[in-house]
Amino acid sequence: MQNPQLTNDGKLKHLLSIDGLPKSILNQILDTAESFVGVAEREVKKVPLLRGKTVCNLFFENSTRTRTTFEIAAKRLSADVITLNVSTSSQSKGETILDTIDNLTAMHADMFVVRHAQSGAAHMIAKHVAPHIHVINAGDGRHAHPTQGLLDVFTIRHYKPEMHNLRVAIVGDVLHSRVARSEIHALTTLGVPEIRVIAPKTLLPKDVEKLGVHVYHDMREGLKNVDVIMMLRLQNERMTSAMLPSSQEYFKTYGLTSEKLALAKPDAIVMHPGPMNRGVEIDSAVADGTQSVILPQVTYGIAVRMAVMSILAGN
């Protein structure tokens, strides 16, 4: 079946999910992002690539960090950016998503960045739009959040370029995470030999071993000698369904503390996609510690989004 993200000659047309992206495109995005990192450190933090293009950020669901970084990314590429929080506009008056898209297309939008609570929303829009328009999925329900996955992979590659030598641990709510699966896929594609998932059974998908990962329920065991620790956010509302007694209990077993971090390699990096629950999945001393790259993740997120937008706009 034709991958809806790619053109007939295999170039990236939309970014909907990391799954199904060939290694060459993953590397192209990561390499291009590396070139964009320096732009933020110059006197003029802008390049003229998307001059004259209009990028529409369509947020049907709120997400301040993702929305802001997409907006900054588009502006640093010199695009004109319009951000619409649709839940508060026409949709509440009964307009359908596709009508909203058609209206914005009539205003000559060139690219849509879409965040929606419904899985598949970005796919549906990508199928609908005119051929010259590009769509980026900025998170659709539980399904995918490809730029988050890519920025995590970028951060790992940036700090640990020898990817074929890495041991990566993903800790926490893998079951409800929209990035964990695609990250496992991307890291495997890029040659990471050992990926561990550390979580209680109730927060793991049934077929998790099939993804080629090593499963640990004991965090102390799982963190031994790892190079990268990726903490996942535990959403409060998941607590009951996962049969977790309390957030204190979760912190005791699966929270990352300095003492547990010491079991990993001394130069291991600690990541978290944000927003953090301090004292639930991560201790403040670790989140703010020297091994934390949580804020650099945010910074690199802009470079990665610039890379995705400029590659799409050129294809």
Binding site: Q28, S35, V39, V47, P48, L49, S310, A313, G314
Partner: peptide, 20 residues
């Protein structure tokens, strides 16, 4: 690469290197 005037015709070069 990020300043080329043929971006709209040719897209982004496959191997951009960071300017330093």
């Amino acid at each position: 690469s990020f300043y080329r005037d043929d971006f709209n015709q040719r897209g982004l070069h496959n191997e951009t290197k960071p300017s330093q």
